Computed example of a mutant assay.
Amino acid sequence: MARTPRPGSPARGSRTGRPSMVLLDLLGRRWMLRIIWELRGKALTFRALREACGDVSPSVLNTRLKELRDSGLVTLDEAEGYALTPLGRELMERCLPLVEWAERWAKRG
């Protein structure tokens, strides 16, 4: 299993572990952005999150959730399920302008 990218440690695209490159490595992993996107509104149980993600395999979802928890972007509350941490919510807020840009880009012609 691949290790969770951490600033200061080598990552795809950066031998020095620049934080921006490490973040792109983390977010570029299969299903990662979809999981974060599905958690943007509320906490979800594992089953609900899996369904929201189009039935991603349980092993991949477990791996991604572990990476997100290790990165401090997602937390697990036994009663409510998985949710974005304040840091994860801030990341989502910062990504929303990209979503808006992509919509304008898609309509360009």
Rank of each mutant, 00 (worst) to 15 (best):
A52I: 02
W31Y: 15
S57W: 03
E80N: 09
M92W: 10
L98W: 12
L87V: 07
G72A: 09
W101A: 14
G81E: 02
M92D: 11
L61F: 02
R6Q: 15
G72D: 03
G41D: 11
E38D: 06
G8P: 07
L44G: 04
L26K: 00
E93V: 03
G72E: 08
T85L: 07
V56Y: 02
P86C: 10
A43T: 01
R94E: 06
R30E: 15
L76Y: 06
D25K: 04
T16G: 07
R18D: 14
L98T: 07
L24G: 02
P86A: 10
L24V: 05
R3I: 13
P5K: 07
M21Y: 12
S9M: 12
R15A: 13
L44M: 14
R64H: 04
M92S: 11
A102C: 09
R34S: 07
P19V: 11
G8V: 11
R47Y: 09
P7A: 13
R3K: 15
G88P: 00
G81R: 01
L61D: 02
V74L: 01
G28A: 12
A48Q: 14
V60Y: 03
E78I: 09
L96T: 11
G109K: 12
L24H: 05
A52E: 10
E80Y: 04
G72M: 06
V56T: 08
A106E: 14
A106D: 14
A106P: 01
R94V: 05
E80H: 08
D77P: 01
R15P: 03
E67L: 07
S9K: 15
L73E: 02
P58H: 08
A102R: 15
P10H: 06
E67A: 08
R89E: 10
R3Q: 13
L27D: 05
R104V: 11
P10A: 15
P58N: 11
F46L: 10
C95D: 01
R30F: 09
A106L: 15
R50A: 08
G54V: 10
R12T: 09
I35W: 00
G17Q: 08
R47D: 13
K42W: 01
L27M: 13
P7G: 12
R47N: 13
T75P: 00
T16V: 12
S57R: 10
M21E: 13
R94Y: 04
R12F: 10
G41T: 07
A43N: 03
I36Q: 00
E93I: 04
A43P: 03
L33T: 12
P58G: 06
G17S: 09
R12W: 09
L68P: 00
S71A: 15
S59I: 13
D70H: 05
L27Y: 03
C95V: 08
D70C: 08
W37V: 07
M92T: 10
L26F: 03
D55R: 13
F46T: 01
D70I: 09
L65N: 03
E51I: 09
L27P: 01
G88K: 02
I36W: 00
E67S: 04
K42E: 14
R34G: 04
I35Y: 00
E100V: 08
E93M: 11
D70E: 15
P19D: 15
P97K: 06
G17T: 09
M1H: 12
L68W: 02
L91D: 06
S14F: 02
M21D: 13
R108S: 13
G28R: 11
S59A: 14
G88D: 04
